[in-house]
Structure formats: structure tokens, C-alpha cells
Design a protein around this nucleic acid. Structure first.
Length: 564
RNA sequence: UGUCCUGUAGUGUAAUUGGCAACACGUCUGACUCUGGAUCAGAAGAGUCUAGGUUCGACCCCUAGCAGGACAACCA
């Protein structure tokens, strides 16, 4: 493992992040009897993305590490935005990442309790019904530098408030006509403390409570109390909620309920990636991508379809660390994590992406032989397979150069290379079409080099992948690249559409020739196409027409050298 | 302009809680190799935002600046 230190006992120990320090401190001091209960609280209004994965791994990981548990709680307090479609996808994604929640709960489960607490606050003179319009409320809130002004309804009697609030619940008033607000301080330097809204009237159908309610609690009023009801010990959220913490604590103190505590960490950002739900939705709606699970999307389902594994994502979440300062992680770290995982696990296959025909002139016409190939040099247990070889082959176009530069190790006129697991071949003749394009190579092979070894011990510099022309299976291959050309897609000049930074070459569809063994593959099976990268079978794939997605290329030293 | 949060190699995260900075990704060498993959070995790269202060000693504590971020939805 990485990031380890060797302590005096010779045991390795990972450096702790600030949340682990806090939890360990709490356990040591006996807070909550050493109990640890976290929660992952998505709003069911969109698909989960890699940023959520960081939060999921954090919440579940922390609980696991300290013998605790984690609730999956849907923060469903806004019926106009939420839908069961999202509930289902969120559950699927959390499970796929490898986590099991202790309880599946919903903020809407607590609507009655929340209502009762609101009544209690009103009775204590800590909340009131405001009849002002949305506009009036906004205006009277003041600005960050100027205090707000009290509502003319601020001093209604508790009796009157109680009565009106009950009628709000009963559905006597139209949407937007009244709200329930906490009575705190209209001059508070923290805008959120300027008599925040607790309840608003929304006559809308809720995905779980149906039409039972027409008043719905706001986030600030619902979240902390939900934590408290579940007796969450550590409520971990992202930095932008830091400002909300005083309010979070205010409700818990006034209501005198279980003291859950909120802690904030910096959300994940990745180069060449947008992470906002709004922008991701826009990409889907405007058909910039195929869907939420488009392999170019940073959504969990997109990454899954792209060929990422839960293990790689978890490792990534571990390696990006946790802290309170804003951060932007190199996309290369994510790519490193998936390569590292797939290198150990993905079986190797040969596939030619851009075919160039090769005829072995001294190989008997009509002959075919089966050659043995190792499935995964990193894993003995993966076994072997056989690959058909014949007189006519395809190799990669980029593996041949008529006038090669100095350090080009691949095929060139007069040059001998190895065909992986097959033979040494030498190129004798280059055949071109009328436009001068190379269309075929005539080569000879050394029958003694069968299997890829030369009996006389002579070395070749290059080893290339290939497929037998008559045996190869054509397949669609989708070559994905980063969705944006700008490392910071959010950095757009004023007034310009943020989507101008979209990479026009983020998807190239080609027809490749793959070795016949690949025809047995199932959807989502992952392979390394030797020397080309990691690929997985797309959900669009059928036995008649296979479709592969490129997850990530292999590290390509030659590309680096040749581009210099 | 108010309040809060945050400033450590290119990017992230550490530093036994005060003993002059480590690990990972990336970059660059080299070795090895039937993947220009993997693996292995090594290198470069920060003196910790700035200025003061406390201290024998400061990335760590204090003060003042500076920079970045968050907050003015009946969103979460």
C-alpha cells in the first residue's frame, strides 16, 4: 500500500486525515460511548458522480475503520425536484461501489416529527409565520454588508402562529403565500441566521408521502434534525455547508435533542472534468453526451460503463486525501488507479485498431495454426489461450514506417520484428495504391522462430500485436478521450458558453479487428488490448456486433518520444 | 465593504502536535522485458503566502497584511 509509514513496531500505518483525528479523539474521550454512525445524504434529484464517490468512501470508510455504521439517507424535502428514478440509481451506485448501509432512510420519514418540533419552536417564541412575498423577504434580508430588516409579522403571538401554521399544513393557503421562519437575528453577520425559512407551502406530489403534505421543510431545518433523530455522531459534508453549521447547532440546542456534529471537507475536483449536477444535466439534455451513463461522464454509472472498477475508484478516493482546502486532482491520478487495478486483473487480448494488411509470402497458402498466448503475465492463474495464425494478417498502421526515425523499433523495410506469440517477420515490400497510400506489406517469416523465440538467440527490438485476417472479428471500438480541452472547464471567459471548451475529439468510433476469442466476452468484461489500452464490452454490444469502450490507454513511452 | 474557511514541490496529501519537510501522481534518467506495458533503481523539483513577534528552536503558536474560496434560493 502507499502512503504508509513504518512505526516502531514495524507495522505500517497510514497518515491520518483531520476527520480521523477528530473521531479518534471522540472515541478516546468516550463521546457517544465510542459509537460511530455516519450517513451519506444524497438528494434524489440526479445521478451520483465521482465527487459523491469521494463522500461515499469517506462516510462508509470512516465508519468501517472505527467499527461503526453508515445510513443511506435520501434528503427528499423538495418534491418538485425529486424522483424515484434517482433513488434507484443512487442505491445501485452505492452498492456497486461496494458499500452496505445500515439503514435506508428518508428525510420524509421524519416529516411528522419535524412538524412537531416546529410547533415547539413556535411555542417558545422561536419561530413565526411570515406573510411577506418572496420578493419582500429577499429584499428585507439585507446584504452581506448590510443588516436586514425585521418582518412586520415577526412579532405575531405564539397562539396566532400556531393557528396559522396548522392551517398551512391543512392546505388553506396557496403556494408561496406564507412561510414559517425561525426568529433569530435579522442583523446577524451570517446571512443564514437572518430568520431562515423553515417551511414553505408546496402543493406537490411527493415520491414517498404522496399528497399527505403541502408544507415542506427546508434543508437547514431538516438535515440536522434528521441526523439527530438517527443519532448520527459525525455528520460529514462539503465545505459550502460550513456557513450552515451555526444554524445546524442552533436547532439542536433549542430543541435540546441528540447533539450530532457537522464537519466539513473540501469537495473533489478533477482536471478536464466538470462536477456540477447542473452542468452534467446540461450535457445530457443538450445531447453533448449520449446519456447519464455516457462513458465520458464523471458519473458513477458513466465510469462503470467506461470500464472503471469499484476497486479503482475506492483507491482513488483514498489517494486524493481529505482536507479543507480547495483542490484539483490530476486526471492522471484517476487513470493511474484504473491502470494499476486492470493491469493485475484484465486478461490480455490482441486487437488491431487501424488495420494494415500483411502477407507472409513464404507462409503456405491456406494454412492455419493455433499459437499459445498468455492471458495475463501478471497473473499465472489466468491461464493461456490459443490464437489463430495464417498467411494474411493485420497489424497496426502506426506500427509500420517506410522511413523510420532513429529510435523506431517497429516494422520498417528490411527490418525484423516479432509478432507477439508468433514469429519473427521481416518486411520486404511495400505496396501502395494510386494515391501513394500504403495498403499492404509483403513480409517473410522465420519458421524457426515459432512462438516468438529465435533458436539462434538473435534479438529484435520490437514486438507487435496482430490478428489473422481470416479469423479476426470486426468490432466497433469507441475511443474516448477527455471531454474538455481545458484543464479547468469552469474557467470560461465572461459571457462565453462554458461548453466551448468541449473536446470535439472526445469520441472516435472505429471498426477494429479483434482476435476470435473476444467473441465470447460478456457486457462489461474488461480486457487489455495489448499495447493499446484497457477496453471493456459496452452495454450496446451484441453477439452480432460487438462494441468495445476504451477505458484508458496504456502508458505510451513511444508517443512521448515521437512527439518530441 | 461584513462574516467564515483555506494558503506546504507541477498536482494532491503528510510531518511523532514546537526539533528545518515525507509519500503518491506527474516529469526526467537508467536497468530489465516476447506489451516502447508491467517491474526495478535513481534524479530533478518546495525551504512551507508575506512581514513582524513568542521561543534555544516555528510548517505548527500570536499579530497584521496578502491571496483564493464560501455565504445575500420559499435549492440541497
Amino acid at each position: 500500500m502507499t502512503d504508509e509509514r513504518i512505526d516502531t513496531n514495524g507495522e505500517s500505518e497510514k497518515p491520518k486525515n483531520f476527520l480521523e483525528e477528530i473521531i479518534e479523539g471522540d472515541i478516546k474521550s468516550g463521546k457517544h460511548g465510542g459509537r460511530v454512525l455516519t450517513r451519506f445524504p444524497p438528494e434524489p434529484n440526479g445521478y451520483l458522480h465521482i465527487g459523491h464517490a469521494k463522500s461515499i468512501c469517506l462516510n462508509f470508510g470512516l465508519a468501517q475503520r472505527y467499527g461503526g455504521q453508515t445510513n443511506l439517507r435520501f434528503d427528499d424535502t423538495n418534491p418538485v425536484k425529486e424522483d424515484v428514478e434517482y433513488v434507484d440509481s443512487i442505491k445501485e451506485d452505492v452498492r456497486w461501489l461496494g458499500f452496505n448501509w445500515a439503514n435506508e432512510v428518508y428525510a420524509s420519514d421524519y416529516f411528522e416529527q419535524l412538524y412537531q418540533w416546529a410547533v415547539a419552536l413556535i411555542s417558545k417564541g422561536l419561530a413565526y409565520v411570515d406573510d411577506q412575498t418572496q420578493e419582500q423577504i429577499r429584499l428585507s434580508r439585507g446584504t452581506v454588508t448590510q443588516p436586514g430588516k425585521p418582518s412586520p409579522w415577526r412579532d405575531r403571538s405564539a397562539e396566532e402562529n400556531l393557528d396559522i401554521f396548522a392551517r398551512m399544513r391543512a392546505g388553506e393557503y396557496p403556494d408561496g403565500s406564507k412561510v414559517l421562519r425561525a426568529k433569530i437575528d435579522m442583523a446577524h453577520p451570517n446571512m443564514l441566521m437572518r430568520d431562515p425559512i423553515l417551511y414553505r407551502i408546496i402543493h406537490a406530489h411527493h415520491h414517498r408521502t404522496g399528497d399527505k403534505w403541502c408544507i415542506y421543510p427546508m434543508y437547514d431545518y431538516a438535515h440536522g434534525q434528521s441526523d439527530s433523530i438517527e443519532r448520527i455522531t459525525h455528520s460529514i459534508c462539503t465545505l459550502e455547508f460550513d456557513v450552515h453549521r451555526p444554524l445546524y447547532d442552533w436547532f439542536i440546542e433549542r430543541l435540546d435533542i441528540f447533539p450530532s456534529k457537522q464537519y466539513e471537507f473540501a469537495r473533489l475536483n478533477i482536471t478536464y472534468t466538470v462536477m456540477s449536477k447542473r452542468k452534467l444535466l446540461e450535457l445530457v439534455k443538450e445531447k453533448v453526451v449520449m446519456a447519464w451513463d455516457d462513458p465520458r461522464m464523471p458519473t458513477i454509472c458513466g465510469l462503470r460503463r467506461r470500464g472503471y472498477t469499484p476497486e479503482a475508484i475506492r483507491t482513488f478516493a483514498e489517494r486524493v486525501g481529505v482536507a479543507k482546502r480547495d483542490n484539483v486532482i490530476d486526471l492522471s491520478l484517476l487513470e493511474f488507479c484504473i491502470r494499476e487495478d486492470l493491469n493485475k486483473r484484465a486478461e490480455r487480448r490482441m486487437a488491431v485498431l487501424n488495420p494494415l494488411k500483411v502477407v507472409i509470402t513464404n507462409y503456405p497458402e491456406g494454412q492455419t495454426e493455433q499459437l499459445e498466448a498468455v492471458n495475463n503475465p501478471e497473473d499465472e492463474g489466468a491461464g493461456k489461450r490459443s490464437v489463430p495464425f495464417s498467411r494474411e494478417l493485420y497489424i497496426e498502421q502506426e506500427d509500420f514506417m517506410e522511413n523510420p526515425p532513429k529510435k523506431f523499433f517497429r516494422l520498417a523495410p528490411g527490418n525484423e520484428v516479432r509478432l507477439r506469440y508468433a514469429y519473427f517477420i521481416t518486411c520486404n515490400e511495400v505496396i501502395k495504391d494510386n494515391d501513394g497510400n500504403i495498403v499492404e506489406l509483403r513480409c517473410t517469416y522465420d519458421p524457426a522462430s515459432k512462438g516468438g523465440h529465435s533458436p539462434d538467440g538473435r534479438k529484435v527490438q520490437g514486438t507487435m500485436h496482430w490478428v489473422s485476417a481470416q479469423h479476426a472479428v470486426p468490432a466497433e471500438v469507441r475511443l474516448f478521450d477527455r471531454l474538455f480541452t481545458n484543464p479547468d472547464p469552469n474557467d470560461v471567459p465572461d459571457g462565453e458558453d462554458w461548453k466551448t471548451a468541449i473536446n470535439p475529439e472526445s469520441l472516435k468510433v472505429i471498426t477494429a479487428y479483434v482476435e476470435p476469442e473476444l467473441a465470447k466476452a460478456d457486457v462489461l468484461d474488461k480486457f487489455q488490448f495489448e499495447r493499446m489500452g484497457y477496453f471493456c464490452v459496452d452495454t450496446d454490444s451484441t453477439p452480432e456486433k460487438m462494441v468495445f469502450n476504451r477505458t484508458v490507454t496504456l502508458k505510451d513511452t513511444w508517443a512521448k518520444i515521437s512527439s518530441k
